[in-house]
Nucleic acid binder design. Structure first.
Length: 666
RNA sequence: GCGCCCGUAGCUCAGCUGGAUAGAGCGGCAGCCUCCGAAGCUGUAGGUCAGAAGUUCGAAUCUUCUCGGGCGCACCA
């Protein structure tokens, strides 16, 4: 509702400015006054106009207030000049509250297919906390976009790109075949044995990957031989149709299934898993190469250090007209004819926007979620019933900030090819890494150098096997929650307690990853991550449970409490000092759509987690201030019940978008 | 060397499309469970917003420079 009133007010003022002063402003700043006593909205527009109109801000504000008062927009009670020239707006509290109770709100959504890509973990090791941040950010964002019962939303597809033919997979294959002397058959047996013992293949690979990485450089006399072995393995995997490639596929697919399980524990699901093997075998690059040459962004370098390579100019250096070769250009095709990572990525992104004529993946069913199918790419014919993904109007790539440069290269290529609209709708959803505090690393038993101990944080490294695995962290969180639940609810069944503990653990984890803004490095520490108090997911869950307890004890429901608002005269109850405190809860509650819009337009889910916390804090405040069940005035009691109901409703919704469930009890 | 990001309370972070007195959590101190669950609430202490100059009626927020920290700058992916 907040957004609805704000919009109509701004439209009113724009019209007024045009009519009275003959000015149009590109955008109007709106804020909230420092105190609710001053009103619900404040506009500093008079300051902006002061110079232009050669009048004191206060005078302009007063004039505007008079004009606006003549015909107030819906939901607005009064407008007045305040301070040095602010235009303060007071809401019609009773009317707004009634609308909020009725769940009137602005809609969110529009046309166009939005493709969100996240997770994209190399399928050669267990997921760690860095991957968790990626997946949780992407999944939350996807929830904000999707159609649901609250909003119209956008058509959305969620992809998880699988680099099943890269060096990281090759490394694990080298480990299996050369360090452990396995072949296809014994690798199969390994998988069966691990499964029988209830062990995780991704954990096994975690250790193996770290071992191989060390092994490559362990013996100086073997450096070249091992490097060659690594390269030969990679090429065999890329080429396909041999035993090495089969081992790689077996491992990559098994690890991928584990990743899907890990993510599903966190309510994270995917629609499609495009794999690099198909990008290779279906020759996406050939089509892209031809297109790039046609459009003039890719050219053969004939001189200098990049002689014999097909290169592309870097972003920001296109004005260069000099004679000599552009030494700064990015190599796309090596002199040996193979394509680089950025080249393949350009081809892939042309496909995402439907710009690769005649090229699409084959689609095969891979995993069934309760409500939908997850598809995977294949170079064979498609199974029926699949969705088509390569036709995006806008894309969001959740990729950490270390890939800023290559991402910029891809956008630059699109722009250079004349696909400027696509380039404009390409969002690199960038975020900073999750690192470990030195203290945390020591606690985990890693050896930390003197130098590293002085740093604020240490980068996680799969190659070194240095990091916290996603499943381990989740297990710990759930166990900690379980201990609490067991002591608080010995009466509940084993299964119920398990469910609640899982909801709390997931809530704590997802909230932890979402409370930091994207460009903040998270220095991970168990003490912070395992906290259930203060600004955490469980704090919000607890507020929801409290509200539920009130309805139970009052012998009513949230729905009935909201319906009661229809016949309730709240006119006096939301004013004055005491009423204002209650009103502030309603006002905050009315801002959900505004928050979601903000999260979408800035690609920043952290605003919503903050909002959820603020709601819970506001509700807890209200809860301690007004003892609802002891309230003897029936009008007040009804209003308080409705207050708890709207607060609970929006807390549940906000948590829902964050991918966090609200437990019945906790 | 070049590019991007960051520097706000003891610690971890919000605030950064310029706007009224710079906020929250944790930690500290002092309180609140015969009363809707204390995973909670109240009060209190704590800040030259890294530093300097500039733009502006107004700067934590915009510009430039300096200092400090991080991450990128491959014919790796």
């Amino acid at each position: 509702m907040y957004r609805t009133v704000q919009q109509s007010l701004l439209a009113h003022i724009q019209a007024l400015l045009a009519q009275k002063y003959d000015v149009t402003l590109a955008s109007l700043a709106v804020e909230q006054p420092p105190s609710i006593a001053l009103g619900e909205l404040a506009l500093p527009v008079a300051f902006e106009l002061a110079k232009r109109l050669r009048k004191a801000p206060r005078v302009i504000a007063t004039e505007l207030a008079v004009e606006l008062s003549a015909s107030l927009p819906e939901g607005v009670a009064s407008v007045e000049a305040a301070g040095a020239g602010y235009l303060n707006v007071r809401f019609d509290r009773a009317a707004i509250a009634r609308d909020v109770a009725r769940d009137r709100h602005a809609d969110i959504g529009g046309a166009g297919f939005k493709l969100v890509e996240h997770t994209s973990i190399n399928p050669n090791k267990a997921a760690h906390i860095g991957h968790l941040r990626n997946a949780i950010l992407g999944d939350t964002f996807q929830r904000l976009l999707r159609p649901d019962s609250y909003k119209r939303g956008y058509e959305v597809g969620v992809q998880n790109y699988i680099d099943n033919t890269g060096v990281q997979v090759a490394d694990v294959v080298v480990g299996l075949m050369h360090l452990e002397g396995k072949d296809l058959a014994s690798t199969r047996k390994l998988l069966d044995d691990l499964a029988a013992q209830g062990k995780r293949i991704d954990y096994y690979c975690w250790d193996l990957y770290a071992r191989v990485s060390q092994w490559y450089t362990a013996d100086p006399t073997q450096l070249d031989t091992r490097k060659q072995l690594r390269l030969a393995t990679l090429h065999a995997i890329e080429h396909g149709g041999n035993e090495i490639a089969e081992v790689a596929d077996l491992i990559a697919t098994s690890v991928l299934r584990r990743h899907l399980e890990t993510m599903q524990r966190l309510s994270i699901e995917y629609d499609f898993l495009p794999r690099e093997s198909e990008i290779l075998h279906l020759h996406f690059w050939d089509a892209a190469r031809q297109l790039m040459i046609e459009k003039g962004v890719l050219y053969l370098e004939t001189e200098g250090k990049n002689k014999g390579c097909w290169v592309m100019r870097r972003a920001g250096s296109e004005a260069q007209e000099g004679d000599g070769p552009d030494e700064d250009a990015k190599v796309i095709v090596r002199s040996n004819g193979t394509v680089t990572y950025v080249g393949k990525d350009i081809a892939y992104h042309l496909w995402k926007f439907g710009l690769l004529p005649g090229k699409d993946f084959g689609y095969r069913k891979f995993h069934e979620y309760p409500t939908h199918t997850c598809w995977i790419s294949t170079d064979k014919a498609s199974e029926p019933g699949h969705m088509v993904f390569g036709r995006a109007d806008a894309i969001y790539n959740v990729i950490d900030s270390r890939q800023n440069d290559p991402q910029t290269q891809v956008v630059q290529a699109l722009r250079g090819m004349g696909f400027t609209e696509e380039a404009d709708r390409y969002t690199h959803f960038s975020y900073e890494m999750v690192a470990l505090t030195p203290r945390c690393a020591l606690d985990l038993g890693y050896t930390v150098s003197e130098e590293d101990q002085k740093k604020p944080y240490i980068e996680v490294s799969g190659r070194k096997g240095f990091g916290v695995k996603a499943d381990d962290l989740l297990d710990q969180l759930i166990a900690a929650a379980r201990t609490e639940v067991d002591s608080r609810h010995p009466d509940l069944s084993e299964e119920e307690r398990g469910t609640i503990a899982r909801q709390i653990g997931v809530g704590a984890l997802r909230y932890f990853m979402l409370r930091y803004t994207r460009n903040t490095v998270i220095a991970f520490d168990f003490k912070d991550a395992l906290s259930f108090e203060g600004e955490t997911g469980p704090y919000v869950q607890y507020a929801i449970v409290r509200a539920a307890n009130i309805f139970r004890k009052a012998g009513t429901t949230a729905e009935a409490s909201l319906a009661a608002m229809e016949s309730l005269s709240v006119e006096g109850f939301l004013d004055g000092e005491e009423g204002s405190a209650v009103w502030e809860t309603w006002l905050l509650v009315s801002k959900l759509t505004l928050m979601i819009e903000q999260c979408i337009s800035t690609s920043e889910p952290a605003y919503l987690s903050r909002y959820a916390f603020q709601l819970a804090q506001q509700f807890n405040n209200f809860y301690h201030r007004h003892h609802i069940l002891n309230e003897t005035d029936p009008g007040k009691r009804a209003l308080y019940l409705a207050t708890a109901a709207v607060a609970q409703r929006e807390m549940i919704r906000a948590l829902g978008y964050l991918g966090i469930e609200a437990p019945e009890r906790m």
